[in-house]
Design a protein around this nucleic acid. Sequence first.
DNA 1: CTGAAAGCGCTTACAG
DNA 2: CTGAAAGCGCTTACAG
Lengths: 337, 337
Amino acid sequence: MTGRRPTSFDIAALAGVSQPTVSRALSGNKSVSEETRRKVVEAAEKLNYTVDKYASGLRKRTSDTLALLFFEDPTPDDTLINPFYLSMLGGIARAASARGYDLLISIQQLSEDWHVDYEDSHKADGIMLLGYGDYLEARPRLEQLVQQGTHFVRWGAAEAGQIGTTVGSDNGQGGYLVGKHLLDRGRSKVAFLGLSDETAPEFLERYLGLSRALGEEGHEVVAAEDAIATAESGRNACERLLDSGVEFDAIFCAADIIAIGAMKLLSERGLKIPDDVSVVGFDDTIAARMSEPALTSVVQDTRRAAETLVDTLIAKIQDAAPESVLLPVELKVRGSS
Amino acid sequence: MTGRRPTSFDIAALAGVSQPTVSRALSGNKSVSEETRRKVVEAAEKLNYTVDKYASGLRKRTSDTLALLFFEDPTPDDTLINPFYLSMLGGIARAASARGYDLLISIQQLSEDWHVDYEDSHKADGIMLLGYGDYLEARPRLEQLVQQGTHFVRWGAAEAGQIGTTVGSDNGQGGYLVGKHLLDRGRSKVAFLGLSDETAPEFLERYLGLSRALGEEGHEVVAAEDAIATAESGRNACERLLDSGVEFDAIFCAADIIAIGAMKLLSERGLKIPDDVSVVGFDDTIAARMSEPALTSVVQDTRRAAETLVDTLIAKIQDAAPESVLLPVELKVRGSS
DNA sequence: CTGAAAGCGCTTACAG
DNA sequence: CTGAAAGCGCTTACAG
């Protein structure tokens, strides 16, 4: 550091006003005259002054910071964050910044004691939870957050009975669109790769949506193999599906990354996509668009999702008690179906 | 929010000691007796107390926070961060956390006035710069950082003449390994997709490494088409390459994501990979491993890169003046070559 | 090994 | 519209 940082007293001296006036001028306080504000801003620029976040945070009792907690999928091999969550990062960072908040990031294991951090130690005014998978395991912790009055918003399944405020895509509608589309294409023996129980509520909603669409035409899901959001897991699930001998003419994967693994196995086994099997994913990631053939997928509006998440959290911080939000999705049909 | 947060005075009262002793006990100060520390820790746990980051930061004049600045590639269409940088995020977050630092994130446009932030306003003790592409444009800003005494470490090209401390992969060695490998496979008419000028020093190093390997056998790069790190750009560059009529039997793409786009175009044009054209990428992303055929690529050790970046920055913060670091790379041969 | 005192750099009533 | 005063919750010399 070239000398010490300038403080508001240095600015005050240079501008010929008192120190509190510097604070008022720079925070946009209405009562400061334009003339005074101009002098202060000029002095601040000259000395390259910025308000000390820690002093200001201590006094105001707010941090102007949001925390983003990524929860890792419990992958056996490596520690991986679902690419879709990662793709939301940019939008969240931008949205937070546009609204005057800094963004603190942390990667968490579901097993860790994450509830006592961040807002408790006054690092953030509120918390966003992303990629939180296992509903049952985390339930007590979410309840504790609610009880402590912590401001938080969860990304994920937004169905009734969820704890706290949630922002998420309309997963049920997504699954339903996929079912309708496959039926349109003359495919009625649809298998599902993903989790279809309460441990992964988003995947479950997608499954139920598919099931509903098929049911309307008198069909049902012919098979469901468990897969978590990794290509490896998708590949293995697809292998179990093939080995089970169940007949199918389409596969709906609960995430693109699962579909990527499944498609790779299918082509290794000599199956043609979409002639022998239609494949559909969810998330519309880059990998999906670039696969061969390009993957039909359910699009979530990442930018809007990110903004909604941030805005909802800020509303909570301001005690506005916002509702949970369900964002519309869209089906993007490509070569794989 | 259930009442006000407890302070160190509350803990002191409960533990029957003075407030400074609470601070000492919790910060691990050696002079506190074990007996006293135990009482304090017990009281702190009982009241769910954590040290206020803002008060502590103000007093200590350090923030125990690192800032990570992502620079977006100037994509024409959408705002995208190179997937490779995103893949480093997890490792960086974990490494920072393991060393007792919080991590602040920001997405930046190269054009913005990013130097006056973060350390200036005392939000972070140091800054990591990732995905910084245009060397020439950013040079004056980096020089200003150095001049201001800001603690920062850059990820990227680590060749001589770079400003400040840099941590990066041995891109030259990577390009060289690719050249050798292609020659081994009997391919000598190698085209390059990426940038091969100073605006993208990492890409340039990869290009030069390839060129050196080919040169040792009396060959040279047959063509170089500009591409930035997006699939779209890779596709376009590959199209220009094909349309140029230049003969080639291999393509080295400066990033996997470029290769993904190029491979897609090649197969649309009916070219077989690797029979007609070998394709090699750089970064070893998931998309590369999952493409059809799987992409030969240069592997950067992401975890080690992330840890080295964080450790180097912490060393700088502690005024240890660390050297720039060049990390070894490895070639992962797969079906595409 | 522990306590009393000072002060980090701000913001916000309180006066005028 | 502006200034003098107090205080946010800690950490760190300074004593003892």
